[in-house]
Structures are given as structure tokens and as C-alpha cells.
Design a protein around this nucleic acid. Structure first.
Lengths: 113, 113
DNA sequence: TTGACATATTCCCATATGGGAATGTAATCT
DNA sequence: AGATTACATTCCCATATGGGAATATGTCAA
């Protein structure tokens, strides 16, 4: 079987840099497709297609306003990703601690010289 | 241009469920390829290929031990993902608050009936 | 209705997988 | 050296994009 579809889950959808930019942009304000494209320097069809993916996994909500479609980020769907990465938090803290300790021991050595 | 390569960054590499499982498995212990496959029910070539991707983006470190290659998760590379998702934390908190408030107002209505 | 504006969708295409099978390679054992 | 163990890589293939261009759809204004 081929690669999993980007529409399969939030992890996959967020893998694309353009889509991450869109999510950041729409986190606080709703915006229309054209505005999004202008903000990020993307073609309109490209924006529409990315929004389609984001909508399919629930990462954005849509609302019609006249001829505009106003999109907004649905942050709740990002939460599972945040939680998954949180499981590793203690590990990178340990690593930083190790790095810090090593740095300090080297400092000690330098002081001795 | 086609889709970005999974080897391009941690976000993309983590998009695959198998690779997330591998990262979780190798977070606390180093393990050989065969052991990883046995733990996750994956074929050896498949494991090797996923590990290759993970290694290319720095998500795992390798160490040779005799004929075994012991892999271990390098959690620091997960940190940027954690930080990116953290930017949205306040938004889903707001949403939960809103949901909670609505639930409470409904409870009030129910009490009135 | 006609025209303009805002989006969505479809086509075409080069590229990137991911899985399975088979094969190549490195290290250990006898 | 020859056999075995542990991995890595390569082939083949069906599928999934993502971008650009062109077109279809939906809404509002005159």
C-alpha cells in the first residue's frame, strides 16, 4: 500500500508547511480564501485545496459570508498532537540536563587549567 | 512539484503512525531492528526503511553493538513540534471554556423545567 | 439576465512514498 | 573459510499528492 492520505488525520495534514502557515494565520481571525492567499503568497486554487484537506480532518471550520467563505482554525484538533509530543517532554529535559552537566564539568576543567 | 519528502523535516516524518510507534518504543530503551519489528508487528525491511527516515531527520540515533544496530529516540527533535502546537494551546482552552459555559447554561435551563 | 467577484474542482504531470519480495552487506561463530 | 545472524538496500507497483492552468459553481450588483 502507498503512503497514508494527508486527509487521514491531523498529524498528516500538519506535515505540510503551507498548511501550518494557514493554521497559524487563521488561529485568531477568520479570513477568506483570497486574503489567505495574499497573506501567504499562494495561488487561490492551492489555498482552496489545502483548506479542503484541513477541513476534512477538522482543523478548520467554515462559514459563508456573502460570496466569501470565512475559514477559522479549530485548535482543538491540534491538541492530540500536542499531547503526543508531551509524552517526550521529560526526555528532552533529561538530555538538556545532561548537556548542561557536561558543559559545567568542562567549565570546571577549564578553571583548573 | 510533488509532495514534500518525509525526510524533509520532523513534522513530515512524524506523520506516519508506524514511525510514531517506533519513536514511542525507542524513547526509553534502545532496541535493535528485529526487536522493534517484533514489538510492532512490522517486517524487517519496513522497520529499516522507517528508521532510515527517522535517522535522516535526526529523530533517532544509532549505535552499533556487534551485528546489531541499536536505535534510540532523540527527543530533542520532537521539541519544535511541541512548541508549534503550544502556540495554539490558549485557543483550545478558550474553546473548552466556551463549551463548558454553554453546558452550564443548559443545566440552568434544565433546572428551571 | 448579464457581469464581476470569490471559491471550488478538475486535468495533467513529476515525484514521493510504503509494502512485499529478493538481494546485498557486515559481523559473529565454528 | 563457510554458515548464520542482523540489517540495509533495491526492485516493482499502486496510490497520493501538490502545483499550475483552465474551468465550473455560487453569490451579489446593476
Amino acid at each position: 500500500m502507498p503512503r497514508a492520505a494527508t486527509t487521514s488525520d491531523a498529524f498528516n495534514a500538519v506535515g505540510d508547511p503551507c498548511r501550518r502557515a494557514i493554521l497559524s494565520l487563521l488561529a485568531s481571525d477568520e479570513q477568506g480564501v483570497t486574503a489567505i492567499g495574499a497573506n501567504l503568497g499562494l495561488e487561490q486554487p492551492s489555498v482552496s485545496k489545502h483548506l479542503r484537506v484541513l477541513k476534512d480532518v477538522g482543523l478548520v471550520r467554515v462559514r459563508r459570508d456573502g460570496r466569501q467563505m470565512l475559514y477559522r482554525t479549530n485548535a482543538e484538533v491540534i491538541k492530540p498532537i500536542h499531547e503526543w509530543t508531551s509524552k517526550f517532554e521529560r526526555f528532552w529535559q533529561h538530555q538538556l540536563k545532561r548537556i548542561k552537566e557536561r558543559a559545567e564539568s568542562q567549565t570546571v576543567l577549564q578553571d583548573k587549567e
